[in-house]
Amino acid sequence: MLKNRIIPCLDVKNGRVVKGINFVDLKDAGDPVEQAKIYSDGGADEICFLDITASNENRDTIYDVVKRTSKKCFVPLTVGGGIRSVEDINKLLNCGADKVSINTAAVENSKVVIESSKKFGSQCIVVAIDAKKNGDKWEVFTHGGRNNSGIDALEYAKKMEESGAGELLVTSMDKDGTQQGYDIDLMTKIASKVNIPLIASGGVGNLDHLVDGIKLGNASAVLAASIFHYGKYSIKEAKEYLDSKEIPVRI
């Protein structure tokens, strides 16, 4: 049967790994290629790089990181951050990325999703949704969580599926960096709205949160950064824990 995936995410800035707490207050911690290799050797089902400040800075460092990683890691590699155009996607795929995750550009112009999924296939187009609760709904944020688009996250998720997204990476802005667990309500609502796999993100502080993301949030995959990155848990420990909770994982 199909296994639920655990995806460690590495935030990368200027070719170095950092982890943002609520998207600010960055700490430097290591070489992304080495980190990715440790994760894939440890059983990570995929690796995700998020180039956090890419919208404003020189992009060449991430291309180099992707190129070097793809020669060492033979599990799927997703790269997001600062992707503006079909050409950006083409460049990352050529460097060895298997999927790209598109955030701001998809909100501003869904044609990027339509065109890129036609050109490269839906399998490599992940749409990243940064959502924040406002009253009884969630709104989509862009530019690394700085701008509120005012768009309803649930309707947007459906629209992205129709535009050709192969997966949705849903991050709760409210939970991200808090270590209090995923926004289960948000995950459940989006998962039931679309028929493509959902990757839950934002807020993981312990292994029970991963379990909840899958069991309660109906996510196909769970993404986490700091709990793995600072060595609180290894990928192996996470998988064994999920397995003990009868969640199908690849061990």
Binding site: M1, L2, K3, N4, I196
Partner: peptide
């Protein structure tokens, strides 16, 4: 045939 939406498509991930 994903049985009327019972299974997500694409089939993405690790399977035996």
């Amino acid at each position: 045939d994903n049985q009327n939406g019972k299974f997500k498509l694409p089939h993405i991930g690790w399977n035996q």
